[in-house]
Design a binder for these strands. Sequence first.
DNA 1: CTTAGTAAGTTCAGCGAACGAACTATATCC
DNA 2: GGATATAGTTCGTTCGCTGAACTTACTAAG
Lengths: 404, 404
Amino acid sequence: MARNAPLDQQAIKRQNRRLILEALRRNGPSSRATLARAVGLTKSTVSSLVQEMLEEGLLDEGNQHKPGLGRPGTELEFSPEHTLALGAELGVENTQIVLLDLNNKIHGEWDWVESPYTPLAERISKLAEQVRIRLVDPTHLLGVGLAVPGVVSGRNLIYAPGPGWRNERPADLLEALLKVPTNVENDANAAALGETFWGENQSPLVYVVMTTGLGTGLVVEGQVYRGRLGAAGELGHWLTGQPKSRSGGGDVEDALSLRAMVRHYQAASGRQEGFWGILQRAEQQDPYALQALQNLAYELGRFVVNLCVTFDPAAVVLGGAGAEAWKWLEAPLRQTIRNLAFIPEHAEIPVKPSAFGHLAPAMGAAALVLQRFLANGGTREWSPPISTLGTRPTIGAPSMTRRT
Amino acid sequence: MARNAPLDQQAIKRQNRRLILEALRRNGPSSRATLARAVGLTKSTVSSLVQEMLEEGLLDEGNQHKPGLGRPGTELEFSPEHTLALGAELGVENTQIVLLDLNNKIHGEWDWVESPYTPLAERISKLAEQVRIRLVDPTHLLGVGLAVPGVVSGRNLIYAPGPGWRNERPADLLEALLKVPTNVENDANAAALGETFWGENQSPLVYVVMTTGLGTGLVVEGQVYRGRLGAAGELGHWLTGQPKSRSGGGDVEDALSLRAMVRHYQAASGRQEGFWGILQRAEQQDPYALQALQNLAYELGRFVVNLCVTFDPAAVVLGGAGAEAWKWLEAPLRQTIRNLAFIPEHAEIPVKPSAFGHLAPAMGAAALVLQRFLANGGTREWSPPISTLGTRPTIGAPSMTRRT
DNA sequence: CTTAGTAAGTTCAGCGAACGAACTATATCC
DNA sequence: GGATATAGTTCGTTCGCTGAACTTACTAAG
């Protein structure tokens, strides 16, 4: 919604269509009259807008709604074939895709393992191939959303340290292969969006994804906060007071990440274990494993408190390891937050594991597509895939001369 | 602009009036034709909207514009009497007020000293009294903006540690006295808004105010980011790794604030000096003073780098001590940022002292009023001052059981 | 001095979108 | 079967923007 463009009558219509569609998604199948009450338009306006959308094939008429007295209404719902979106997470070690529609119905979910450092182009071709195998015709899709573990600026990927990608144009690549409009987003941002898009609308919402590193996504009033270049939320790289290298000092990741946890465990127990190994040992009451988890909870608690003074969120959602180990983290985490909160309201800030587990980034990527479609009032406005593969993004990669 | 309300034709009109007024403010006096080109409306539309605003007294016709060929245009400008806003900063030790109009003309600027810990009600009455002395009739004001050094939620002040206020309703108090609509904002947020409202529109923009403590304000696309309760940006309270008390640990303020600087200076030199004293000694090449400033620049540089990974701003503006000592800080600060930046773009992030110096928060408070007026398309929509002084804000004060 | 050229600003018929009152349709309750 | 209630449609009205034609006011060239 361009804040700096003059409005015309079409803008009114688009906005009102958007409101109707959003209400329909929030509340599930509803009658015209119910929609009219929900969005504050008159019955006649809703009727005519709905009529249009039925003719476009965007909506379907469903069952009769029988609430008791009076004439029963006809329920409206999204046409599944016309509101499909595909979300894909290009993780470091695997690819996860999910196909769903605006009725919040998941039509399919697939994933496969990838070998590390596979070039992005290969990953994208494989994705396109798999999509073709699973879908009869990808052109039915409203779009594809890609969640990637790195800094995203606009449609371009600037830097993804995990898989080792720099200055790539995944959207252009995929559009060229599938002829489907594609959005790209940082994985934490995407997951954060997904959480608000399908969950309660808690704003602002911070999503914390702890894997080998640590990143956050921020969603304010349904909009992803990206910063100027898309580099916001890289809080794992916040420099703390602990001097480590001569020039900089340690960062938050050094204390809060799977790497840090594994390191702690090894230092204490003398045993070498991965994250899952530690969890297993914790099941068997290994005191070192329990200690490592306790320590993780403490560090995570401090971090949440810091998120509170920074973003003052309405809720914090944990993804990655934070969600996997939730069982052990919950109690000590809660206690740490209570002890350290700056204002009392933050002491009881809702913290919960992601509703979608490992699917969260892929779901969020799909949400990106659906959100955009809704914002346009349910119109697919896609410029045909112009080949711009020749030009490169102008933003450089991070300097690697520092930090470890 | 309510994102979730249906639009009607009045909304179009309001938006278009807003665009015209904003263009007029940005570009200074302009003709109808120029405005039409600037906002993308037709001449006829602009003409009729302008006609209305002339009749309302909001705009005045000015001189003829003589650009060369063709009929000269009539310049339009804001009526100074109808676009006055008052900004006030209720600082810990003084009150600063500024009166200005939408032509960006400052009509007056006053300040007076306050004794610390004066109850807020007294501060407000004194402010009202001074306004009455200086202004013939306060009802001509579009509104009053109040900048306060604390956490603000909506119209209410939750907690201001400096002057020691808790759970106050400054807006209600002032409205009862002056019968003028009043907005309240955190001082750093206000200053940040002022910086973007009158400066180049760099978004996101972070304002860093370093006084005895440390706070930040964030403005994104012209809108202040407040978080859920208005407690965002309290980055001075970010917990760092340095353990200090048993429960929490030190925070950023412990390393970066005037308190920290004074402490450092004393530890090194053995002399007790305030901030201004240290600056004076630096003038005389006192090595300890220079060292303290160098150290401040280093800590500030680290902080700016952290702001970059957190908010990825387009620019950082310094207020308070950061601005006063700019002369000594600039070079080492720049160098620190260059050394520590996470991505190369952040190495050269624009950092500059506030354009308004000590006036920044008061200017920002006034900007708050003007921005709101513009957002409404230049209509004063004020509900008469209903007395709600009986009810109290529901948010508690920070817990003081921790942190030193 | 006259005339052509150019740009500013006005007027007005037309259009698109929402509204609201009056209407029809279809159910329940007594 | 009639009263009542709610869903959905129809259509004339209102409102704001548009675009074309027009008027106004100036400069430049002959």
